[in-house]
Simulated assay, not measured.
Amino acid sequence: RDAQARRLLLIALVNAAPVAVTSTLFLFYVELALEAPGWEGPLLLLFFLAAAAAAPLWGILAERHGPHRVLLVAMALGIASFGGALLLGPGDVALFALVCLASGAVLGADLTLLPAMFASRMAQISPSAAEGFGLWSFVSKLTLAFAAVALLPALERAGLQTAAGTSSDTSISLLIWFYAGVPCALKLLAIALLASAKDVETP
């Protein structure tokens, strides 16, 4: 029933969608677009280590400048860092490692600031409302299901095959755009929603 809580949940839904898309397509991107089977684990580890290492820094910045402003900057940096994946191709493992490092560091803001803003709002309106955090978890899970249902069948219809060397050039191009282009577009939408919600930090 609280307008600010609903707005934060909507932002969380849209903002979680890019991560859901990249999580769904990560293995395909590394194996088929970069043609680098075996690098999935190290690259994924680098991504999450960067997110964990950067999270405290984002918290410090949020205390100094406010979570709303800092999160907007982090989202914009996320687009700038992850957009580079659109330009990569076979053999560009080292460059993609840099993308993982930069985008992982930016993800640290998403993982800490937006949930903290929601928790702060819940503490103000209903400290014992566990349903609120249940909804928060639900919107994150929903994006994963949506990404799998919406993107994987489209790639299959385009001719994407899991075996290396058997996919058409069109399907590989579509995979790259789905993996990097769609998340950037969704992040732009999340930025627009957050920028218009200037009251989310006020009691």
Rank of each mutant, 00 (worst) to 15 (best):
I11D: 13
L95T: 02
E201L: 01
L86R: 08
V106I: 13
E63R: 09
P115L: 06
I176A: 06
A94P: 07
V93H: 11
D92Q: 12
S167F: 03
D110Y: 02
L45N: 09
F47A: 14
V93M: 13
L34M: 09
A74T: 15
W177K: 02
V200S: 06
S103K: 08
A150L: 13
L88D: 08
I172M: 03
L27E: 06
K187I: 14
E40H: 05
E40M: 05
G66H: 01
E63P: 07
D92E: 13
I125G: 01
P127C: 00
L27M: 05
G83M: 03
L174C: 02
G89A: 14
R7L: 10
G41P: 11
L86H: 05
L13W: 08
G132W: 06
V19H: 04
S168T: 15
W39I: 01
K187Y: 11
E35M: 08
P18W: 14
M117R: 05
L188I: 02
R64C: 10
L189P: 11
L194V: 09
L88N: 06
I60M: 04
G91E: 12
A20T: 01
L10M: 13
A5Q: 06
L88Y: 12
G38D: 04
M122W: 08
S167H: 02
F82L: 14
S23H: 08
L13E: 12
S120E: 08
F138Y: 09
M75W: 07
L101N: 08
L9F: 07
G66F: 02
D2K: 01
A50L: 12
D110P: 06
F96T: 12
L174F: 03
T162P: 00
F133E: 10
G89L: 14
L151K: 01
G181V: 08
Q124Y: 02
P127E: 03
W177C: 06
G132A: 11
E131K: 08
L43G: 13
L98F: 09
I60Y: 00
P37R: 13
T166D: 01
L188C: 12
V73N: 10
A97F: 13
P127A: 01
L144G: 12
G59H: 01
A55F: 05
L25C: 10
A53V: 15
A123F: 02
R64W: 05
L151F: 04
A33W: 04
E156M: 01
A195G: 04
T162S: 04
H68F: 01
